[in-house]
Amino acid sequence: MTTVKQSSESGAPDKLRRVPTDPEDRAPKPRALIVTVYGLYAREAGGWMSVASLIQLLAQCGVDEPSVRSSIFRLKRRGLLTAAKVGGVAGYELSDTAREILDEGDRRIFERRRASADEGWLMVVFSVPESERDKRHQLRSRLSWLGFGTVSAGVWIAPAHLLDETRETLARQGLQGYVELFRADHAGFAATADRVRDWWDLDRLHELYDAFLAQHGPVLAGYRRRRRIDGARAFADYVSALTDWRRLPYLEPGLPLDVLPPDWIGIRAADTFFELRRRLAGPAHDYVESLRAAA
């Protein structure tokens, strides 16, 4: 599967993008919703989904057919989807690249990993020749996507538990030749919590979490009052919540709580998402299966 820039079509988010203020701007975009649907339901069925099924499912999320078709075309152009027919039915399947990104994203999105202060930090130090500025931009984009904070132009930092994920991502992108990775402790001079505010924009992160809670907190409150859950509604609400959520674990990569502000809002946002997942994932899956069976 942001993000992941939920990739983002893929679960990978643009680093601290503008926080939407208009309610319509907070609605997940069609391409991101399509990636979420493929990540949740197409992978378990071989990675393929018919165009007709996708149009029917996205209609539950308020996306019309022209928008679905346009978004599919863009995802195909980006190499995430490939046209394929199954039993004479037109559809699209995930590319190998898309599968890798979604599989990798599962670990970040669905695991509530939170670093502790004694685990230390992962430092990335890189130098890219001026003649390869495109590689420098690509490297910075990858590190932003992974959730690194910026110490200086060529020194980036993240919790140490991101080591394996960082190594795999940079190697897959062919960027490992420009980078050195180090395990480190922060030894001063300022308090680590103060430095974290310099390395990550915690105020913007707070706004992003707050926007998620404003959008999906009332949805969860509604489900807590219901005894019966409509499958189509559960599908739409779960896909929307996951599409909004998946970029956030990339932007805030499980920073230690003792370097974050008290009562960090990210904990409440995570609680909201994972309770929605617990309540809605099953009914949503049953709804998709019922459509497949009727096709």
Rank of each mutant, 00 (worst) to 15 (best):
F182Y: 14
A211G: 07
F235Q: 12
A270R: 07
V259R: 00
R224E: 13
R225A: 14
V196Q: 00
R225F: 12
R227Y: 14
P218E: 12
E252A: 08
D201W: 05
R224T: 00
L208E: 15
I265F: 04
S240K: 08
R246D: 12
V179N: 12
R225D: 14
G188N: 09
A187P: 05
F189Y: 02
V196Y: 01
R246T: 04
G231C: 08
D198Y: 04
R228C: 09
A193E: 01
A193L: 00
Y209N: 15
L213E: 13
D230M: 05
W245D: 10
E207F: 10
D230A: 13
P249E: 11
H216F: 15
D198N: 07
L213A: 11
L255A: 05
L202N: 04
D230T: 10
A193T: 01
F273P: 05
Y178Q: 07
W200D: 04
G217L: 10
E180K: 15
L242M: 11
G222F: 04
A190M: 02
F182K: 11
F235P: 07
P262V: 00
L205V: 08
D203R: 12
D201S: 07
R195V: 01
F235W: 11
Q176W: 13
V239A: 15
D244C: 05
W264T: 06
L181N: 14
G222P: 04
G217P: 15
R268K: 06
L220P: 13
D244F: 03
H186G: 02
D263R: 05
Q176N: 15
A234Q: 02
Y178T: 07
Y209H: 15
I229C: 12
A191K: 11
R233M: 11
L220S: 08
L260W: 06
F189A: 01
A236M: 04
R227S: 14
A234N: 07
D237C: 06
V239S: 12
R247P: 04
H206I: 00
D244L: 05
G266Q: 03
Q215G: 13
R195C: 05
S240G: 07
L181D: 14
R225G: 05
H186I: 00
L242H: 14
Y250P: 12
G217V: 14
P256D: 02
F274G: 02
A232K: 10
L202K: 10
F274N: 01
A184Y: 10
R204I: 03
L213K: 11
L205Y: 13
F212Q: 13
F212A: 08
R195K: 09
D230S: 14
Y223R: 04
L202S: 01
R226L: 15
A270F: 02
V259Q: 00
R204C: 06
T243D: 13
A193G: 00
W199M: 03
E180W: 15
F182D: 09
P256G: 01
A269M: 03
A270C: 03
R183E: 11
G217M: 13
W199R: 09
A184P: 06
L260R: 02
R195Y: 01
H186R: 06
R228P: 06
P218L: 09
P262H: 03
R233N: 09
A221L: 15
A270T: 02
